[in-house]
Design a protein around this nucleic acid. Structure first.
Lengths: 178, 178
DNA sequence: TAGATTCTTCTACAGGTGTAGAGGAGGCGG
DNA sequence: CCGCCTCCTCTACACCTGTAGAAGAATCTA
């Protein structure tokens, strides 16, 4: 479908050049489509961003599937996969920053729904699961951000390697500990 | 000094509109200066962004000053102050994303230098202080991000309140635990 | 005070950008 | 086969943006 071609190109563009690089014509070029195509499918820039965000949501639908025998490991593998999908994750961060001034984008973007985190915290025996769930979420977000664009992006292990997963797992274990 | 007036306006702009809103003329308007001023001080856009980033660094110079009797508390207060200085912190995130494609910006932007974190981890009795320091940093970054733009920005306690600091402190304590 | 130097404002311009609409191509139902 | 409708491509245009330089105002030095 042409719409997906366009939004995929948009995601790649945002990852490479930031939100500033997201223009109708640049998307046309990136997608190898004739000039005007993007503008036809997404008349306004706002519509284009919304399309991009929806596409992000679709691509990330793969939930964290929790192997209950190795919770930390499965979370670590998920984080690592987000690091490997660098472009998509960078685009997501750009979109989240954008969502600061366009709240209608927010709903789609927030990883790991609150209930999931709370339930997990409860299962792990935290006494205040609501709060603990939030903290766990924060920690996971932090690991991702740190390794993707923060200090750990230059010094940490290479994403996609077993070493990377193990390092993340160590951190996640600490985060999950009641 | 006029240069600071300009970079301050630039920071506010980026916080409110994102990097896309950062144009020479928009900065002029925001700073209440005649058109052309920003362009005179920062001929190119790249120069303007560099000026903005340097200004950010100056404004954040206030190091985390560690009260050794209440390490978690002082870190929590620092995080909370970053939440209160919402604009500045948002601008920093935008700049960090930008730094993804402009590595020369990175040096200035990374909070809590590696050595500081490693030393702290060592003092707290972590067996692998290098790694533990990185994880602590990641956690702190995560708390900040989560509360500023992530899921916690809508549901968490209001920054600047004692409740907010206490919530953060609880999380930091967990992060610091060996 | 006079001249030199720096700071400030204004104006220009080539290109890029958002958005709209006109028209063509191609497939569909009848 | 014809008319219709959807999808696609092209073109237009007002406005914004980056960047440069000219000219004026202010400040400093001697």
């Amino acid at each position: 479908m042409r719409k997906d071609l366009i939004t995929d190109a948009a995601i790649a563009l945002v990852a490479e050049l930031g939100m500033r690089g997201l223009t109708h014509r640049a998307v046309d070029r990136k997608a190898g489509l004739p000039e005007g195509s993007t503008s036809a499918y997404f008349r306004t820039r706002k519509a284009l961003i919304e399309g991009l965000v929806e596409r992000l949501a679709v691509q990330e639908q793969q939930e964290i599937d929790l192997d209950t025998d190795d919770v930390a490991g499965s979370i670590a593998r998920t984080i690592d996969s987000w690091l490997v999908e660098r472009n998509r994750t960078l685009a997501r961060y750009a979109a989240m920053l954008e969502a600061t001034h366009h709240p209608e984008l927010r709903t789609i973007l927030v990883h790991s729904p609150r209930e999931q985190a709370t339930a997990l915290a409860q299962a792990l025996g935290h006494k205040n699961p609501e709060r603990a769930g939030a903290h766990i979420t924060a920690f996971i977000e932090g690991l991702l951000f740190y390794r993707l664009v923060g200090g750990g992006s230059t010094t940490g292990p290479t994403p996609g390697t077993e070493e990377s997963v193990q390092d993340l797992k160590k951190a996640v274990e600490k985060a999950l500990r009641p």
